[in-house]
Nucleic acid binder design. Sequence first.
DNA 1: ATGAAACATGAATCATGATTCAAGTTATAT
DNA 2: ATATAACTTGAATCATGATTCATGTTTCAT
Lengths: 201, 201
Amino acid sequence: MNDTELKTPKTARGLKTRNKLLDAAEKEFGEKGFHDGAISGITQRAGVALGTFYTYFESKEAVFRALVEHMSNRTRTHVASRVAGAPDRLTAEREGIAAYIELVRQNEDLYRIIMEAQFVAEEAYRAHYDRFARAYQKNLTEAAARGEIDPAHIEERAWALIGISVFLGLQYGVWDKDKPAEDVADAIDGFVRYGLDRQER
Amino acid sequence: MNDTELKTPKTARGLKTRNKLLDAAEKEFGEKGFHDGAISGITQRAGVALGTFYTYFESKEAVFRALVEHMSNRTRTHVASRVAGAPDRLTAEREGIAAYIELVRQNEDLYRIIMEAQFVAEEAYRAHYDRFARAYQKNLTEAAARGEIDPAHIEERAWALIGISVFLGLQYGVWDKDKPAEDVADAIDGFVRYGLDRQER
DNA sequence: ATGAAACATGAATCATGATTCAAGTTATAT
DNA sequence: ATATAACTTGAATCATGATTCATGTTTCAT
């Protein structure tokens, strides 16, 4: 009952075309946004005829949804792989922020498309952040069990940490790309560890 | 050279009509979003004829811009008035978060419209957060001078604090309205003060 | 009291772009 | 080798809704 399955390509040619369309949609929507982006723009970028689009996607909204899920996965795997080696949660936090800012910088479309999902594919948007929030809560709970962090208010802290990443990504990944992502992550590390109150050490 | 001035009403009647249109636009865009919202929807809600809209606004984008500025001011004054009596910055931080969540809850349109500005009125969106970031930096700098907080990395911390408010507003003001805003503010207070590391006290 | 400026009206215009479809081409299982 | 499913094509359809404008009404300074 979902678009992705309904129109799954059956041959290698079809798969290739569908991927070309997804890549093209990423560029089109990333550049122009959902409403100014056009199906004809997508098919032109992909080098296929207009009608071909509807072989793989039910509607303009449907590609967008597929795209959001695609980018949500990309974000998760990018950050996760970067964080994997961290010795403890607080270090992982710092790495995660650096990885996220870098990702946004390298791939500005990603930030914009996920944000715009809030208005075009609200379900997908909420699912994206819920998934993140749950993952964060799991990590924080485990870290608390190991005695690495304060065990209080895990849920609220998870959302706060998401907010920190997203807004640092906006400011230092999209708007002001001058500072190295590592420097921003270092700068915020002390705050995440010890709050506004203490000096970092 | 700006829309607001070009079409400023000259009489009391005109002013009243313009305000009716702004209120109506807030509801229309808040409910349906920018693209699904219609000028005809706005004028119907306002109880005026379609053409009247263009007596006061140059275009659909222009009302939206006016609206964003209006709501940006509303947000600032609401939070500022709530924070005014706080004895120190860390207490102010806690009050500010509670005030923001309450505002979002009472007025969900506001959250949505400001967020959507990112795509419809990017300048206004960035201006809104830049203004906030500057105010935060000023407050943090002064608090650091009084010895209330760590003086390091003021700019990055300002953006992090904005991100915290916005995402707590999203989660607890828009999506999950069950917890009292005060409880959320209390829950996050320890994190903002002492980070993930310590127990709150 | 009156004329000019402000304001209000809503039908008509107009551009845009998503979606459909009937006809053709290519891949693949047998 | 061939039938069938998978895929491709792009011109035609169609709905939507922003914007304009010519005509009327109200306000207000004098």
